[in-house]
């Protein structure tokens, strides 16, 4: 257990170094531009102002894909521990995993037939 924790000790140090580096970069930038304030600007779409704010409920046409993706993504989580026990558990582990994946792939085939994977 002690050993397992020791492996993570460099991570916060690394995070600290990166955040420190980013802060130093911002400081250096502020020094270089003599403390000039950020520019307040309108959004760019070619030079003319838009008629509304861009913040909106953005219509994405790929949302059916997100559903299939979630199903696979959850499945992926099981695959990580699975790789360590494949030999131990033998053929049954492989059969079960790929049977499950096969079922998910059937969903992909169905989604493809329904045109969910192409939206333009």
């Amino acid at each position: 257990m002690m050993l397992a924790m020791a492996a993570w000790e460099p991570v916060p140090v690394l995070l600290g170094v990166v955040i420190g580096g980013l802060a130093a970069l911002h400081g250096l930038g502020a020094w270089l531009r003599a403390g000039q304030r950020p520019l307040e600007s309108g959004p760019f779409s070619g030079g003319l102002p838009p008629e509304e704010h861009a913040f909106s409920r953005f219509h994405v046409r790929w949302y059916p894909v997100t559903m299939i993706f979630l199903a696979f993504d959850m499945e992926m989580l099981f695959m990580y521990p699975w790789v360590r026990v494949v030999r131990e558990r033998g053929t049954s582990a492989v059969v079960e995993m790929f049977l499950f994946l096969g079922i998910l792939l059937a969903a992909v085939a169905y989604a493809r037939r329904e045109g969910a994977l192409r939206w333009a």
Partner: peptide
Amino acid sequence: LLGGQPRRTTAGDPWLGRIGIALVPV
């Protein structure tokens, strides 16, 4: 870019954007 002026857009959410940007190198 380092010596350039940062930029904020009208009624934007600069901190949200900045968190996103910082996440890339992190």
